Computed example of a mutant assay.
Amino acid sequence: MSAVLVHSQGSDRLSAAGLRAMLRELEPRSVSLVDSAAEADVVVYASHVVSGTEMCLLRHQAEQHRAKLVLVVAKIPGIGLHNLVTCRIHAVLSRDEADSDTIGRAVHAARNGEGVFPQTLQGSLVAQLGRLEEEVLRPAGQTLTGLNPRDIEVLRLISEGLGTSEIATKLAYSERTVKNAVHSITARLGARNRAQAVAQAVREGLF
């Protein structure tokens, strides 16, 4: 497990110092502390509760740098999907329960593109995702995976055992179009091959 480049921040000097002390316990194997968000893979931000002003600052920081964000807060905020995406928040930890090991796991999860959220927040986010898909994406012919109806039809035919030329004939596409579609589909689903893409589509309930 390679060390993650981490920049620590706090809403006040005490929060910042406490967070930095815990992160230092993870050096040098798990994390490597850096002096700015511009150098970091992950920014860890400690606060009692994230205010609207702080969220704006975190959003601006996310726009300027590539670092993902881990929040360590005393009061779990009601984070909307907009803030989750625009601030690149990958983990939210309770300040009372956070220790160096917990923060270390969250940092590595964030670096790997994974999420770590309290159960209460997970429920809220799932509900928001459901509304987003139902009210915005489906009317536009899209899904949360970014796949359109053509992509889903290609996946369905692959699941039935059809090859590239057979799919092209059935859908009246060129073989190049089908190959490009399959490449795009596997990339969007994070799959290594067609079989994995079909399995992921089934798990997502796409067909």
Rank of each mutant, 00 (worst) to 15 (best):
E114S: 04
L147T: 08
G141M: 06
A181H: 10
E166I: 03
E134Y: 12
G163F: 12
E133M: 02
V126E: 04
L81I: 11
K170T: 13
R95P: 00
S124Q: 11
Y173C: 02
G104W: 03
T143N: 03
I76L: 13
H90Y: 15
I167V: 13
A172W: 04
E166C: 03
G146S: 04
N83P: 03
E133Y: 04
L162A: 06
A187E: 15
V116T: 13
A127L: 09
C87N: 06
L144C: 07
G123A: 06
P118G: 04
L125A: 07
E134V: 05
I158A: 02
K179Q: 15
Y173G: 00
L93N: 01
E135Q: 13
N193K: 02
H108K: 14
H183E: 14
E133L: 03
L125W: 10
D101L: 14
H108D: 11
L129E: 08
V136Y: 06
P149D: 10
N112C: 12
S94L: 13
R192Y: 11
E175L: 02
T186K: 13
V136L: 12
S100H: 15
P77W: 05
H183R: 12
E175C: 03
P139E: 03
P149L: 02
A110Y: 00
A106K: 04
D99Q: 01
P139K: 06
A191C: 05
L144S: 03
K179N: 14
E160W: 07
D151E: 13
R192N: 13
E133D: 12
L137M: 08
E160I: 01
L125R: 10
G104I: 03
R131P: 00
V178G: 01
K170S: 10
V107Q: 02
K179S: 14
L162R: 05
L171R: 09
L121I: 09
T177D: 10
G80P: 06
L171K: 01
G80T: 13
A187Y: 09
N180Y: 12
N148F: 13
V85Q: 12
N180S: 08
R176I: 14
L129G: 07
A140H: 10
A110M: 00
A98G: 03
C87M: 09
G161A: 05
R188G: 00
I158R: 12
Q119M: 13
G141H: 04
L84F: 10
K179F: 13
S159E: 08
Q122W: 11
A168K: 00
A91S: 09
L81T: 08
L125V: 15
L137E: 03
S159V: 02
G141A: 08
E166M: 07
G115I: 15
N180A: 06
T86E: 09
K179D: 14
T86I: 12
I158V: 15
G161Y: 07
K179G: 01
D99P: 00
A91T: 02
G161P: 04
T164N: 09
R176T: 12
T143K: 00
N112F: 06
N83T: 05
V85F: 14
R95T: 02
T145M: 10
A187K: 14
T102L: 14
Q128S: 11
R156S: 14
V107P: 02
N83Q: 12
K75A: 14
G113D: 06
I89E: 01
